[in-house]
């Protein structure tokens, strides 16, 4: 067998390894209930901000607390130990990476989806309530 063929086979093996490891590294999107079954294990939860519940940001300790509702409808206090993301109130969807604990769901990373500017422009274009 040619050496190059051997090399190709080795690299295909590495590529397959990459798939397997990625799959085991990869988590699944879960709800808070699932996350609370194994506190301390990291998960990604997608939910949205509960705008009815109070939000609390203490800049001095940099502890930001809010309540999120996951896709299954479960409410959960979330603690984010970083400055409050700008414009958090306006977020439509919040992706939280973190783990469950007694003091709440500890989010280490937060990604939010804001309403796109196009939607807002539609509101402006809705000037159209004008009648002759």
């Amino acid at each position: 067998m040619k050496k190059t063929h051997l090399a190709i086979i080795i690299f295909i093996a590495i590529a397959v390894g990459a798939i397997i490891v990625t799959m085991s590294d990869a988590s699944t999107y879960v709800g808070f209930e699932e996350a609370y079954k194994t506190p301390g294990t990291k998960y990604t939860v997608i939910g949205y901000l509960d705008k009815e519940a109070p939000m609390h940001y203490d800049a001095r300790t940099q502890r930001f607390e809010f309540t999120a509702i996951d896709k299954e409808g479960k409410r959960q206090k979330v603690v984010y130990n970083q400055p409050k993301p700008q414009d958090f109130e306006r977020s439509e969807e919040v992706t939280m990476k973190g783990y469950a604990s007694d003091s709440g769901f500890i989010a280490e990373e937060i990604l939010m989806k804001c309403p796109s500017k196009y939607n807002e422009q539609n509101e402006i274009a809705g000037y159209g309530t004008y009648t002759e």
């Binding site: 990459a18 490891v21 799959m23 990869a26 988590s27 699944t28 999107y29 990291k42 998960y43 990604t44």
Partner: peptide, 17 residues
């Protein structure tokens, strides 16, 4: 039965490879 989420420690994951 569930959507796959990207690895939690994404930078570590990429750097590891």
């Amino acid at each position: 039965d569930k959507d796959i989420a990207p690895p939690i420690e994404i930078i570590k994951h990429y750097n590891g490879w």
